[in-house]
Amino acid sequence: MFKKILVPTDGSELAEKAVQGAIAFAQSTGAEVVGLTVIDPYPTQGAIEYVPVQSFDVYLAKMEDVAQTRLLAVTQRAQAAQVKATTVVKKTFSPYEAIIETAEAEGCDVIFMASHGRSGVGALLLGSETQKVLAHTSLPVLVYR
């Protein structure tokens, strides 16, 4: 079946549940897990710019720390379940592209990710990284709810 599972996380509660689900799935199938988190290379959000109070270097160091904390949780959960795990941090403004690129680069045969369940105007304006991944990858995607 699946041998290598990519599981992206943004540290949200839903993403953490998906991480747990991916590790349980990997454990049951004998697969390994690749944890991924994506950080913004510079703090902007759409049309609204945010200029950090601190310097760019301080911002980037804080984001790297956040990323490592997210991925440490993946590694610790995987170790507890005796599942082999590696982790990747990507810096980009396009998380869905990083997810697809990482899955391909790491030789993953499935992407296991959370559905954040946005609906209505929120989904229309913000979009969904899960929807973008589904639309742009040829790999199987398991959407965890």
Results as ranks from 00 to 15, higher is better:
88 V>W: 10
64 E>D: 15
64 E>H: 13
96 Y>S: 13
89 V>M: 10
76 Q>C: 08
58 V>N: 05
85 A>S: 14
65 D>I: 00
27 Q>N: 11
84 K>T: 15
76 Q>L: 07
91 K>A: 14
90 K>S: 13
90 K>D: 05
76 Q>E: 15
94 S>E: 13
63 M>G: 01
98 A>S: 12
99 I>P: 01
52 P>T: 05
89 V>G: 12
39 I>G: 00
41 P>H: 03
26 A>H: 09
63 M>V: 06
24 A>C: 01
46 G>K: 01
75 T>C: 07
69 T>I: 09
51 V>L: 10
77 R>Q: 14
82 Q>G: 05
33 V>P: 06
92 T>Y: 04
50 Y>K: 03
95 P>M: 08
39 I>C: 02
60 L>F: 11
48 I>Q: 04
53 V>T: 11
97 E>C: 01
94 S>R: 12
71 L>V: 14
79 Q>H: 14
29 T>H: 14
32 E>R: 13
72 L>R: 15
34 V>P: 07
61 A>D: 14
70 R>W: 04
52 P>F: 03
37 T>D: 10
99 I>V: 15
83 V>S: 12
100 I>R: 01
79 Q>S: 15
38 V>S: 04
41 P>F: 02
45 Q>S: 09
90 K>T: 10
27 Q>F: 01
50 Y>G: 00
76 Q>Y: 06
75 T>R: 14
88 V>Y: 11
100 I>C: 01
77 R>H: 10
93 F>H: 07
107 G>I: 07
80 A>Q: 15
85 A>D: 09
34 V>Q: 01
92 T>N: 04
104 E>R: 14
42 Y>I: 05
43 P>Y: 01
40 D>K: 00
43 P>N: 03
83 V>Y: 12
37 T>L: 09
33 V>T: 06
93 F>I: 02
89 V>I: 15
72 L>P: 00
47 A>P: 00
100 I>P: 01
89 V>K: 06
